[in-house]
């Protein structure tokens, strides 16, 4: 594929003397993007969000306190940009550009002919094209599922949990997917926590986590163990499900409970993927 069919023609341009903070704000809306840096009409470099972050104030508070705002606000794009940009002609192939970016450790290449800058192409753009190409060859299937499992003892909840787990395992097998079994533990009640000697609460919490992991692992049939993993979190159930779904990149969340139940409703409202309530 020729890079001229993939490049971003309307890439942002920024002057080297401009404020780094302002340029970082422009980049914030496009984490996979980059700005072309010009200096006196000539190409001077490129600026990606990572470059801006690296040159900005330290992310460690005990180091950042030694960076006076009056000084950091004086940082310019020139302080952060990559000065040796990868420059490719418009008829370069995506393979040529990928090779140049990989070997030189850059994230973006400037597409230019002998006269002017025509656009940019980033690692994100190349990966997007790779995804499209591979998905054309193999239609997408579900590859990661999350099932929220309650280890509570009530018979009703256990029945609902087993239904959700059975459904999730069935989909996982048919799609050749990976399944995460999640249990979200509630924290210790304040009365119990206050009754524990200092330092013991953390030990109790570790013990509860280990017990929950073992209980989840026992729920998985032997033939499904290689395609399942367990995840135990503490705190709010909906937050736990959403965080686990984000971490595992789940494409489908399966959970027990009526679709009208508050936890299910809230999960459906906020989930980044479809939710199947059984």
């Amino acid at each position: 594929m020729r890079i001229k069919t993939l490049m971003r023609c309307s890439s942002g341009i920024v002057e080297a003397r401009e404020s780094l903070a302002a340029a970082a704000m422009r980049l914030a809306s496009d984490p996979g993007g980059c700005l072309v840096v010009m200096d006196g009409g000539r190409l001077a470099g490129v600026l990606t969000p990572a470059d801006a972050r690296a040159a900005g104030p330290s992310t460690v508070p005990c180091l950042a306190v030694h960076e006076l705002p009056a000084f950091t606000s004086g940082l310019t794009v020139a302080d952060a940009m990559r000065r040796d940009p990868v420059i490719v002609p418009p008829d370069a192939t995506s393979s040529d550009v990928a090779h140049a970016l990989r070997t030189r450790g850059h994230r973006a290449a400037v597409v230019a002919d002998s006269v002017e800058v025509m656009g940019v192409v980033t690692t994100t753009d190349l990966l997007g094209a790779l995804v499209e190409r591979l998905e054309q060859e193999t239609p997408p299937r579900l590859s990661r599922l999350l099932v929220a499992v309650s280890l509570a003892a009530s018979p009703g909840r256990r029945r609902s949990m087993h239904t959700a787990l059975d459904v999730a395992l069935d989909i996982t097998r048919r799609h050749g997917a990976m399944l995460t079994l999640l249990h979200v533990m509630r924290g210790l009640s304040r009365r119990v926590a206050e009754g524990l000697p200092a330092g013991v609460e953390a030990d109790v919490q570790r013990w509860r986590l280990a017990e929950a992991r073992a209980a989840l692992a026992r729920l998985v049939p032997r033939e499904d163990r290689s395609t399942t993993r367990v995840d135990v979190r503490a705190g709010d159930v909906v937050e736990g499900v959403l965080n686990s779904a984000a971490t595992t990149g789940a494409e489908l969340i399966v959970m027990g409970g009526r679709p009208g139940a508050a936890v299910v409703r809230e999960t459906i409202r906020r989930a980044p993927c479809p939710v199947l309530a059984t």
């Binding site: 040159a55 330290s58 992310t59 030694h66 000084f71 004086g74 940082l75 302080d79």
Partner: peptide, 20 residues
Amino acid sequence: ADDLAAARPSAATTLSIGEV
């Protein structure tokens, strides 16, 4: 590597190289 680079102080730090 980006996290490590972002943790380093910027050019505007008042710390010496040895302190960093």
